[in-house]
Design a protein around this nucleic acid. Structure first.
Lengths: 221, 221
DNA sequence: CGTCGGCGCACCGGCTGGTTCCGGCACGCA
DNA sequence: TGCGTGCCGGAACCAGCCGGTGCGCCGACG
């Protein structure tokens, strides 16, 4: 898959070397075709899973990994991002390119060490500039993402704790309080307490509503 | 509305004329770059909304419209497909290219007149052959989709009625039975009856579970 | 004309769900 | 060391919600 390119054209600056990671082969091929036609950008590898992305990032040490967050099965985009930045010591920059601009996704990606966060709905030239920014280590957020970050700063919505996510996960399976309690080795009373706190944070007052916003905001894996 | 087309050229050599419809500008650009490099395929237009796709399909009368089903706001992909096939009398073929292979999505797309249903996770050459198939009016289903169709034929899972979808929609907003009743001008008892039937069809036994599978299977808009 | 699927309704009993209040820990900080 | 805070786990209470069952009406369809 990797073609060692013996001829390095010393242009104004060397090409930005990129690894693509997206589980959709068609859009991956599309991105490659698109980026191949762009000057100063060179796609050196493709991955269709998080694990493969990490491996390629280590082996090829590209300047930028273009990472989708939703990766079907296995390692998810956030975790892959975390491992890549950790293992490379920050020398390989991850630019997230995804469809959703949910608070949870953005936060987790940034917290995992992503250098930028771009939406697939963005104009392609934004993508090119973002890639060069990311290669230089500069943060690149697309407009809607930046807005969300700002909004979150202004009105800090409390994040769910790990335990609360556990409860919510069971709830989303349609379990009753008693069953959740059994599943997590808790008292039923405790489950209710957690649920109450969850309702507060999600601004709902019923279980069904909680499940709805949980799915909506992609709070569950 | 239908213009008589006096001469139908039996072309092997002429390119298949295509209109792209996807609300993500980046993947649209990627697809164009990919298809532009393919022989025998010519992208003649791009749309980022259902409405625009319908307009372009009428104006350009392409051989194939490559249609994503999830189109953010406005006309959704299924409705756009329905209008295009209806307005063109079937002369413009719609090839659905999307990420999800949910039963509901597949069924609705086919029922709306789509000539084919392809997943973005498919290999790009599948895409090329599917495009040519669609241009010739031949049905093109990618493997996982075909499997699902067969499975559904074998064990016909009852589809939700319109009314049941209404109820489910309100339920997914976290409303209580009483509130759903008020919202839909029903008796609370009726709401419960519908919910019971919904549980049966979705194979769950709690409201939270119903919301979960509803979101999972994309039963709600 | 039969009957079948979809819709709407009534009644009821069990028990689930939501609320409130409380204590224990771990941690950070002065 | 003492204090404040955030998170976790729990007890008790009671309203009323939920789910099940049975039934009638209607229109479509054969």
């Amino acid at each position: 898959m990797t073609r060692p390119d013996p001829v390095k054209l010393p242009e104004e600056a060397a090409s930005v070397r990129i690894v693509l990671c997206d589980d959709h082969a068609v859009v991956r091929a599309g991105l490659r075709a698109l980026l191949d036609s762009a000057p100063g950008i060179e796609v050196v590898g493709e991955a269709d899973s998080g694990a493969e992305a990490v491996a390629l990032a280590m082996k090829l040490t590209p300047d930028v990994v273009l990472m989708d967050l939703q990766l079907g099965v296995g390692l998810d985009g956030v975790e892959a991002t975390r491992r890549i930045t950790a293992a490379s010591g920050g020398s390989v920059h991850v630019l997230v390119l995804t469809t959703y601009d949910t608070d949870a996704d953005i936060t987790r990606a940034i917290e995992a060490g992503a250098t930028g966060y771009l939406l697939k709905a963005e104009r392609p030239d934004e993508l090119f500039t973002a890639i060069h920014s990311a290669a230089a280590g500069r943060t690149a957020l697309s407009a809607p993402v930046a807005h969300r970050v700002m909004a979150r700063m202004r009105s800090p919505r409390p994040a769910l704790t790990d335990r609360e996510r556990d409860i919510l996960g069971q709830l989303a399976r349609g379990l009753t309080n008693r069953d959740i309690a059994k599943a997590l080795y808790l008292s039923e009373a405790t489950v209710k307490t957690h649920l109450g706190r969850i309702y507060g944070k999600l601004d709902v007052d019923t279980r069904a509503g909680a499940v709805a916003v949980a799915k909506e905001q992609r709070l569950l894996p």
